[in-house]
Amino acid sequence: MKNLTLKYNFIFILILNGFWVNAQLSPAEVKTLKQNINSATADLTSLQSDFTQTKHLDFMENDVKSSGKLYFKSKSKIRWEYSSPFSYYVIFNNEKMFVNDNGQKKETELSSSKLLKDLNKIMLGTVQGSTVLDESKFKIAYWRSGSDYLAKMTPTDKTYKKYIQQIELTFDGKTYLLKKIKTIEPSLDYTLIEFRNQKKNITVADEKFAFK
């Protein structure tokens, strides 16, 4: 009998613990979280970060892994650079997009396509977490995840629904910077981007945003 009680206590603690680790935030907590994310990006003048990208396809045994660096300079200069498995980078600067695909270069005006404008917005959103939480196109639920915060975004927009089942954003509980992005497709294949070594407001050379 004593053993049984112990067992139930143990299960109870496990459940309780589970709730604590992944508890949905109250409206007041959501408000505070949003304020913290906003102020973390309000004073952001630059950011440099390493990232790894994992593409999971259900039919493949191994995930496809890529890695590189992200550079941002206020207000809207951004360089998203893969160094592995091959060199590829995209720069957004001055309403233009520049792609260097292993030496093959291309420059495009952002005004030429809505898709590019959206891509630019998404990339900036990965730095300025506040703009990525777009409640006009997503239903968003906020959770506590260990010492971090998790925003689960389900698209309400028709076009987004075709490509995305859910986006999970993890914000660092201390810096309130975006730490992980998991994009789940309707087929349940997903892409996970994890940021490491985030350096806020350090000097990033203008050279990084030159189209070459």
């Binding site: 990208q53 593409k55 396809l57 039919f59 493949m60 045994e61 496809v64 890529s66 893969y82 498995p85 590829y88 490509y163 994009t183 497709e185 087929s187 294949d189 892409t191 981007i193």
Partner: peptide, 23 residues
């Protein structure tokens, strides 16, 4: 990126993804 998996003799599955992981 193109991923390819052999499922059997003369049976292969492929996926074409962009650099950012989109299928």
């Amino acid at each position: 990126i193109l991923v390819a998996k052999k499922l059997d003799n003369n049976h292969y599955r492929f996926a074409l993804i962009n650099e950012f992981g989109g299928k």
